[in-house]
Simulated assay, not measured.
Amino acid sequence: MLDPDRLPDDRHDLASVLRALRRAAGLSGERLAARCTMSQTKISRIETGRAVPTVAEVERILHALGTPPDVAERMLQLARVANTDFTSLRAYAEAGLWRAQDAIKALIRSATLVRQFLPVMPSGLLQTPDYARTVLTPAIPGKVKRDVERAVAARLSTQDTLSDHDRRFLFLLTENAIRWPVGNPDIMAAECDRLAQVAEYPNVELAILPRDAWLPIRPLNYFTIYDDRLVTVELFSGVMTHRDPKDITQHAGMFDALLDHAVSGEAARELLSRIRSDFMRQVD
């Protein structure tokens, strides 16, 4: 019998502990697979660390093994950790911000539907070069030096994915995200033009939450949903990645709830035009 107080806390030990639990129960991989209605290949991939099981899959395995509740709870904690990653923005900056764009481009290319909720500013997929340059130039001095121009070029390169009409994009922005003046009025007016341009793409839907709209939930974080496979959530300190289907479903539900209160199509274009006019009135 495994002692729950001796179970490892590292997410990378999830596979080995599941394998140990199966062996302690006296079951072969084939018998366990039959008990939890999974393939023997899937069980093998989980136990060797080649596949990360969802929390629901770990629950099925633990139930099939008759795992004691205290051990099962610790294992479910490990499973939740295994399905969540965190990368700090400091680590991104130290490695080179352009490398983060390579990762984003790879995620986009692996998906057929990309949904972004943007409460603070348009994402890199929607930014003009001047807007991106302003955003990526550090305002607070630090030890990490940024190659801003290389990061801008990488961000603009990622926008090439918008031209693939086999892939759909749904952008949901708050009005405040468009109005927040990260640059001078000319930069902001040009960004409005860019948003209006992208909204005309046949594979893109752009929706805006008016700032006077009543919202059922508070829009706190920027997040992106890639198909129904994973969600990335951008925080002030870094990026969280969730792979658990329950987390993905939760974010998809929040996205849909907010989308119900947004304007799109002609109404969104009219709102963009008004915002652009407001910026142009600030130009000397």
Rank of each mutant, 00 (worst) to 15 (best):
P141N: 09
E149R: 14
A103Y: 09
A177M: 12
S273A: 15
D244M: 04
H165N: 08
N203Y: 08
I187R: 09
T134Q: 13
S16D: 12
R50A: 12
L206I: 03
Q116Y: 02
L107Q: 12
L107N: 07
D5A: 06
D260I: 06
K143S: 10
R74L: 01
R74Q: 11
D193R: 14
S264W: 04
D227A: 07
D102L: 15
N176L: 05
L7P: 09
P210A: 01
P129K: 15
R155I: 04
P210C: 02
V144R: 03
S44R: 07
L76R: 09
R229A: 08
L206M: 07
V204S: 14
G26E: 05
A262M: 08
R146Q: 15
R60A: 13
V152P: 12
Q40G: 07
Y222T: 15
A93R: 12
L215N: 01
G265M: 06
L230S: 10
L27C: 02
I217Q: 08
L27F: 06
D102E: 15
V81Y: 00
K105W: 02
F223M: 01
L76G: 01
N83K: 11
L118I: 12
G29A: 06
A196N: 09
P141D: 10
A24D: 04
V231I: 06
C36P: 06
R23L: 13
I43A: 07
D247R: 13
A252K: 11
D278P: 09
T174M: 01
K42W: 05
A153D: 10
A93Q: 07
T232N: 03
L126G: 00
T241F: 07
